[in-house]
């Protein structure tokens, strides 16, 4: 490595000497950049090319690029605006739909409530009628039962009187009238 470095340094010195010799050869020498007679043609052509470049850039090339970029920006802006508008419309439609839905739901529940109320009223009425009827039948039945019971009790006393007369006759030979026998029987209905 050190030998390589030495060679490098020696070579650098060599290059320097070569260059110095080369420049010594044409004595006009020095840096080519400082060679004054070369200034005029460079300046002239720099001016020509730069002015031409500026003209081409400002009149042709840049407006074309700017146009496309502008157009793209506009297009994107337009598309975004359209998307925004469509989104607004969708939102509105969605809102209308929601409203219709909630309206429908409201009216449906109203109808259901009404129907339920109506049905409930009818059922109540029917039930009441049936209950009334039943109550009347019950009352009738109770009345006839009471009547039958009274009648049955009456005939029970009658039969008991007859039985008493017969039994007394047969056992004691005492004539008892039916009236007396009946009176002697404690009232069964008093029990």
């Amino acid at each position: 490595m050190i030998t390589a470095m030495t060679v490098l340094v020696a070579e650098a010195l060599d290059v320097g000497r070569d260059v110095a010799e080369a420049l010594d050869e044409h004595k006009s020498g020095g840096l080519p950049q400082l060679h004054a007679p070369d200034f005029a043609p460079q300046l002239f052509w720099l001016a020509v090319t730069f002015v031409l470049l500026y003209w081409i850039m400002s009149k042709v090339a840049l407006p074309r690029i700017g146009e496309v970029i502008e157009e793209r920006r506009d297009r994107i802006q337009r598309d975004l605006a359209a998307a925004e508008r469509l989104k607004g419309e969708t939102d509105k439609a969605l809102q209308t739909y929601e409203k219709a839905l909630s309206d429908a739901r409201g009216s449906a529940s109203a109808i259901a409530r009404k129907t339920r109320d109506e049905l409930g009223a009818e059922v109540d009425k029917e039930r009441k009628a049936v209950e009334d009827q039943l109550a009347k039948k019950l009352a009738d039945a109770e009345a006839s039962i009471a009547a039958t019971k009274t009648k049955a009790l009456a005939s029970v006393k009658d039969i008991a009187g007859d039985t008493v007369v017969e039994i007394v006759n047969a056992l004691t030979n005492i004539n008892v009238t039916k009236d007396e026998a009946v009176r002697a029987i404690p009232s069964g209905s008093d029990k």
Binding site: G16, V19, A20, L23, G30, L31, L34
Partner: peptide, 10 residues
């Protein structure tokens, strides 16, 4: 560096 180059080659 420029000065160096000018000294060397100028």
């Amino acid at each position: 560096l420029l000065i160096a180059l000018i000294i060397l080659f100028g």
